[in-house]
Amino acid sequence: MAEYERSRTMPALPEQVFEQAADVGRFDAWLPGELHVHVEQPPAVTVHEDQTDRDTAAQLRAERDQMRIEWGTREQGGYAGWLQVAGLGSGASEVTVHLSFFDDRHDPGERAARDALDSSLRRLEEQVRLRTDRTGG
């Protein structure tokens, strides 16, 4: 089993960050470019991976009261993950993303996982900034 975790501070209220992160319709704006989430009957979703051109049955749950999103594969149990938003005060937030790979076939390796997490967090921050700039904070 392999686990990877990355965090990033974002200059926005935790509610704003969580709202952006939990909006399934905007996942493509911050998830790794090769992953696409298609909602079925919540919490059921399908994740399409461009590199392999495969669809994976998954589950996705957003817990607004906890500012937490959890996901994972449904049948094969290959991977799971979560995103947690925490307020830091002064209008800033910390976002942590954690991935667990229970099946080596799903594990992209430490460098690829770290790079994907860092890139996703950076893209999420950009989306949050765009949204808060448009709404005036």
Rank of each mutant, 00 (worst) to 15 (best):
D104H: 10
R26I: 05
V17W: 07
T135R: 14
A58G: 02
V39W: 00
S120I: 00
W82A: 12
E126Y: 07
G77C: 10
L88W: 01
L31M: 15
Q41Y: 10
S90M: 08
T132V: 14
T135G: 09
P14E: 10
G89C: 03
V85G: 04
Q41T: 15
R114V: 13
E5M: 03
G25F: 12
A112Q: 08
V97P: 06
S120H: 03
G137I: 04
E34Y: 13
T56E: 12
E40G: 12
T96R: 09
R131Y: 13
E110M: 06
F102G: 07
P32V: 01
T132R: 14
E110G: 10
L83E: 08
R74S: 15
E5H: 04
G81E: 07
H38C: 12
G89I: 01
A80E: 15
R114F: 06
R131I: 07
A21H: 06
Y4L: 02
D104C: 07
A29I: 09
E63Q: 13
H98G: 11
Q20I: 14
L60F: 04
P42V: 08
V47H: 07
V39H: 02
R114T: 15
R8V: 03
T46C: 11
T73S: 14
R6F: 05
E110L: 05
Q16Y: 13
L124R: 07
G109D: 03
E5I: 04
L121D: 04
E19D: 09
M1R: 09
R129G: 07
R61N: 09
G33L: 04
D53M: 02
A44I: 03
L60I: 02
A22S: 13
R122C: 02
A62Q: 08
A62P: 04
V37M: 09
R61L: 12
G25V: 08
E94F: 02
R131S: 14
V85Q: 04
E70F: 11
L88P: 00
G89L: 00
E126D: 12
F27T: 02
D107Q: 01
R134M: 12
D23Y: 03
A112N: 06
L117N: 03
Q59K: 05
E5S: 13
E15K: 05
Y4V: 00
A29F: 10
G137S: 00
L35S: 10
T52I: 15
M10F: 06
W71M: 09
F18I: 01
Q59D: 06
R134P: 07
P43W: 00
E94R: 11
P108E: 03
W82Q: 12
L31W: 15
H106P: 04
M1Q: 07
Y79W: 02
Q51E: 11
R8N: 02
Q127V: 11
E3W: 08
G77R: 05
L121S: 02
A62T: 03
D65S: 06
E70N: 13
G91K: 05
L121Y: 06
E15H: 05
A113W: 07
D23I: 01
P11N: 09
L88S: 00
R123M: 02
R64N: 13
V39G: 05
H38N: 14
V17C: 07
A2I: 05
L13E: 15
Y79D: 02
A80R: 15
T73R: 14
V24D: 00
E63I: 13
R74N: 14
E75H: 11
R68C: 13
L31E: 12
E15P: 01
